[in-house]
Write a protein that binds this DNA or RNA. Structure first.
Lengths: 195, 195
DNA sequence: CAAAATCATTCACATAGGTTAACAAATCCC
DNA sequence: GGGATTTGTTAACCTATGTGAATGATTTTG
């Protein structure tokens, strides 16, 4: 059924029952997006947060020089959206774009709050998730500060091997914080070393 | 009085009364640290979060190559500590060291939770603060990705001019993510441009 | 199916910042 | 007060990554 992935995922962090998950799904808007479609853009209000039930997206920012920087990719079982914009009512500074056809379970603020309130285990999950996301960001910053692009590439390869099958390489480069040409060069050097 | 700075600071974000602040201060442990003293170190449990009533500290991490990376400096009116370690019960990955003699208002988990619960305006303040801190981290990461060290230096100079009076230059370099020699070079180049 | 758009690779050259080492200045501390 | 430590500067050289441009390959789309 439709809630299966969500259920399995939540279960891993928090003792939640199938009924609770069904209830959670009940609060959601089930939405589909086409490839390349934007869920929101920089300067808009990010009205929803959502669970990726199917598909792949990128969450990114455009800097003053007009260059993209991918904050992260989201695939199945990821939650995505700008929680801060969501709660602060400020326009978001990010873009969220589908890279594949996506099926999402979306929550506007009201639905999300209600779900958190009515399903305490879910609230607990959100808090844990939030803390982990914060950690992950710091870790990424540290990695940017102290590792070479090659190391970052290798770690990504290890951590999310699937991503390489789903996302064009120049977007991987953007995620790693380098130019596509540089990634190409790194891959070439690596293949030379191997052999 | 002792609560003055805290009161003035909180008032700026949230409508809080002097009584509430006195109550908040009542829950705190008032602690003094000597220059160079560590409040906690990587691998320990970060038992406290605290408000800097007086002094200056650095919050940093040591990477695999044994190099320091300063996440941020904290001076008067900053809150500091590892909230995640605090709530997750996991050992912290950070070091917190006084760079000057410090007076801190410290809260262990119990005191902090109690304060949040008993003083709703304070709880509101903590939430806002938390969201802002998350944003600030992302902004810093973006800055690392898309700006030169010189730009980052200039922005720091603009945003926290005081820091330069209080903190040795090689720590500023660590915060900017460069070597002390590089900062020296940048400053030299800049002074040449000016004249 | 063909034209257009997107994506990946390679190369030559430019540059920011790292590295090492030496030295000077400032500060700490017995 | 004087030696030890910490801090800042400079210079020469090195390296990772950026830049720009050319070329194919692949994918999208009418």
């Amino acid at each position: 059924m439709r809630h299966q992935l969500l259920f399995n995922h939540l279960k891993q962090t928090v003792p939640i029952s199938e009924e609770e998950v069904l209830k959670l799904l009940d609060y959601a808007l089930i939405k589909n997006y086409r490839k390349k479609e934007y869920l929101f853009m920089q300067g808009e209000f990010a009205k929803y947060v959502g669970f990726v039930n199917q598909g792949c997206l990128r969450y990114y920012q455009i800097d003053e020089n007009g260059e993209d920087h991918i904050i992260y990719f989201a695939i199945e079982t990821w939650w995505i959206g700008d929680l801060n914009s969501f709660y602060s009512g400020q326009p978001t500074g990010f873009n969220l774009q589908a890279l594949e056809p996506c099926e999402m379970f979306m929550y506007d603020k009201e639905r999300f709050e209600k779900a958190r309130f009515e399903i305490p285990t879910f609230d607990q999950y959100v808090k844990i998730r939030h803390a982990k996301a914060t950690d992950a960001r710091l870790e990424r910053m540290m990695s940017q500060l102290s590792e070479t692009a090659e190391t970052r590439y290798l770690k990504l390869l290890e951590k999310f091997p699937d991503i390489f099958q789903r996302v064009p390489q120049h977007l991987i480069a953007s995620f790693l914080g380098i130019q596509p040409q540089s990634l190409s060069r790194i891959r070439k050097q690596m293949s030379r070393k191997e052999s």
